[in-house]
Design a protein around this nucleic acid. Structure first.
Lengths: 184, 184
DNA sequence: GGGTTGTGCTTCGAACTCGAAGCATATACG
DNA sequence: CGTATATGCTTCGAGTTCGAAGCACAACCC
């Protein structure tokens, strides 16, 4: 009753080296994320998502709608609402309905928000460098950036397989609703 | 009030290409993780962590203690307890105190657990292939696996900076407690 | 052996996440 | 214009995560 209990030769074999790449990627990314979040929480009292929101705002002109933020982040909309609420409560951000579209909410970073980012960013970069970049050669970094950008763009472009568009409420879902591909 | 609000020249400059690598890695890994979890939840009704636990058990001899599992996974111990409880309730795993050490809990995968993994794995691999591997050349994959393994090992080896060992309860935390490297 | 310290795991409370459902505004279409 | 549909965001409930504190057994030391 010994030996591996699972037989991997189900679909196509998929050589171990490919699985290794996948597992190592997953594990390294998780470890890195944990470290980064631990640092942000300690310094500056920010969650990872809050940091991403502030970074995105600070890198541009300081303003964006919720949808624009959601499109850039890998996050649910409701979670974004929650985190934006926290940021607003902390005074790092303001929220106000858009002029052009009453439905849209424009999130604007405050001076204090900029200050927090400025204070936290050096340490953040330091963590990333120590954990990730210092282990990679210049060529590694180039290669990695190029690969990950390719993979990211591919996933952004092609919906996951079942990107069910919002169902109409007061209507029987009879006719072909295979309209537009939706965003995540 | 225009132009980027943030000045990145805080610590060392850290060329944009390096930051690009970091951001792309983070984003691609997040997207991949979301896809994988969506698939696992749909098929097989498993969370990502549950899948990892089962995989780890199925790849070995089907048994491991909680600590052994925790050391392999990037997860808190309490979270592991929770997920192991769910797996046990679902009948995919059993838990029993170890013979050699009454404190330790030995988790053992059941036949049904093996069956679930076997059923879910092909689709899982398919998602990984479509999302990640198909976008990479053979050389890319080799390179990526090697890089990520290096980074992972580095983070595993070096504790995050403040791996505070468990504080003694009935004792003042005076002397240097820089004891053993802790696991996440 | 009895106290001290270490280790393995669980419990607990607070915080975060997600998808579904809901509300309000905007746009399309007759 | 007026109804139907699309879009932007929030609310809600259920599930998941984490770290701190706690419990139980183990190992060490005198």
């Amino acid at each position: 009753m010994t030996g591996p209990l699972i037989d991997l030769s189900g679909a196509e074999p998929l050589e171990p080296e490919r699985l290794q790449a996948y597992f190592a990627l997953t594990e390294a990314a998780s470890l890195l994320q944990h470290r980064v979040e631990r640092h942000l929480r300690g310094e500056g009292d920010l969650s990872g998502v809050q940091f991403q929101i502030l970074m995105r705002l600070a890198s541009g002109d300081g303003r964006a709608t919720m949808t624009e933020l959601a499109d850039g982040l890998v996050h649910s909309r409701s979670g974004l609402t929650y985190q934006a609420g926290l940021l607003e409560k902390a005074g790092l951000v303001t929220r106000a309905p858009s002029e052009q579209d009453e439905r849209a909410v424009v999130v604007t970073i405050t001076d204090e928000g900029v200050a927090v980012i400025s204070r936290v960013l050096p340490g953040h970069i330091d963590v990333v460098r120590r954990s990730l970049l210092d282990q990679l050669s210049d060529d590694d970094v180039r290669r990695l950036a190029e690969m990950m950008a390719r993979v990211r763009d591919h996933m952004r472009a092609e919906p996951p397989r079942s990107a069910a568009a919002r169902r109409s409420p007061s209507r029987a879902p009879v006719s072909g609703e295979a309209g537009g591909p939706a965003q995540a």
